[in-house]
Design a binder for these strands. Sequence first.
DNA 1: CGTGTGACCGGCG
DNA 2: ACGCCGGCCACAC
Length: 130
Amino acid sequence: MKKLKNNLLKKPAEKPGTLNKEYSFFEDVYGVVRQIPKGRVTSYGAIANYLGTKLSARMVGWAMNAAHSAKLKVPAHRVVNRNGMLSGKAHFATPTLMEELLAKEKIIVEEDTIISFEKLFWDPAKELGL
DNA sequence: CGTGTGACCGGCG
DNA sequence: ACGCCGGCCACAC
């Protein structure tokens, strides 16, 4: 249980009203997603929950939508919905890319759904500590 | 500054 | 079991 969490979680909060373009809610999401261990997966809701906005898992999805714009690569393929379905695969370069990336990590996908999703599930709030 | 929308989630008919 | 609807937050127009 490493306590390397807070390195990426500091809130922008520099100045109220001064929005930092370099930093945003997206960066928070990316920070968490990048910490997902290889071969593990998590859900939008789990990330949202970890960031404190659990009722707004949609925002996480929105962030992933812009993940391709992130400077650093974001392993968006490790993020699925709570059913373990590859809901975002359509947003990858190719329809099969997400599944292939997961396959490289020994994650088996069938019918757009991750097998043994519950076992592979990685909860940031639990693993990183809340 | 108002409105729409989204790779979600959970509840209710 | 299945489908619809509302909510929540940030961002683009």
